[in-house]
C-alpha cells in the first residue's frame, strides 16, 4: 500500500463520520417521550389517537388557514361536542401543559413548530394576566 500516511488517517476520518451517531450517543438510546394525557381526564379528541399522532400538524395548519386567511371560524362538532378552531381555544383546553404534552415529542424529534411565535401556552398566558 502506498501513501499510508495520508490514506489511513483519511479512512479513519471517513469511518468516524459514518459512525457519528454511534459514538455521539455513547450507546444510550434514551427513552422515547410519553406525552402527558389531559390532566382533566378528558378522553375524546376531534379525531382518533392514530390520526392525531400522524396528522395533527396538518389539521392545525388547515384550521389556521380557515380562520386567519378565509375568516371561517365555524365550529367543529364531533360527537355532540363543539370545538372552536384554535390551538388555545380547542387543543390546550384539555392538553393544558405545553411542556409535558407538545414539547415532550417535539424536543425528541427536533421539531420546531412556529405555533408559539404567535400563540401563548396556558402557563405563559396566565403570567401575562398577572402582570397586566
Amino acid at each position: 500500500m502506498y501513501n499510508k500516511g495520508t490514506i489511513i488517517p483519511g479512512l479513519i476520518i471517513f469511518v468516524l463520520f459514518v459512525t457519528f451517531p454511534i459514538w455521539f450517543n455513547g450507546f444510550k438510546a434514551g427513552t422515547p417521550p410519553k406525552p402527558e394525557l389531559p390532566p382533566g381526564g378528558e378522553k375524546k379528541c376531534v379525531e382518533s389517537v392514530e390520526y392525531m399522532r400522524a396528522n395533527h400538524m396538518q389539521l392545525l395548519d388547515e384550521w389556521r388557514d380557515n380562520v386567519l386567511r378565509d375568516g371561517n371560524r365555524s365550529v367543529v362538532t364531533v360527537e355532540g361536542k363543539d370545538y372552536r378552531k384554535g390551538l388555545q381555544m380547542a387543543c390546550m383546553q384539555c392538553h393544558s401543559n405545553k411542556e409535558k404534552f407538545c414539547d415532550s415529542c417535539h424536543t425528541y424529534a427536533a421539531v420546531n413548530p412556529y405555533c408559539w411565535d404567535c400563540h401563548l401556552s396556558p402557563k405563559e398566558a396566565a403570567s401575562k394576566e398577572e402582570t397586566r
Binding site: 451517531p21 438510546a29 422515547p32 400522524a54 415529542c105 421539531v111
Partner: peptide, 21 residues
C-alpha cells in the same frame, strides 16, 4: 402518506439501530 408515520416510533427504531438494541 402519513398513515402510521409516527416520528416518535421511527426515531425510537433509528436510535435502537445506532445503539445496537
Amino acid at each position: 402518506l402519513r398513515t402510521d408515520i409516527d416520528i416518535i416510533n421511527i426515531k425510537n427504531l433509528a436510535m435502537g439501530l445506532v445503539t445496537f438494541s
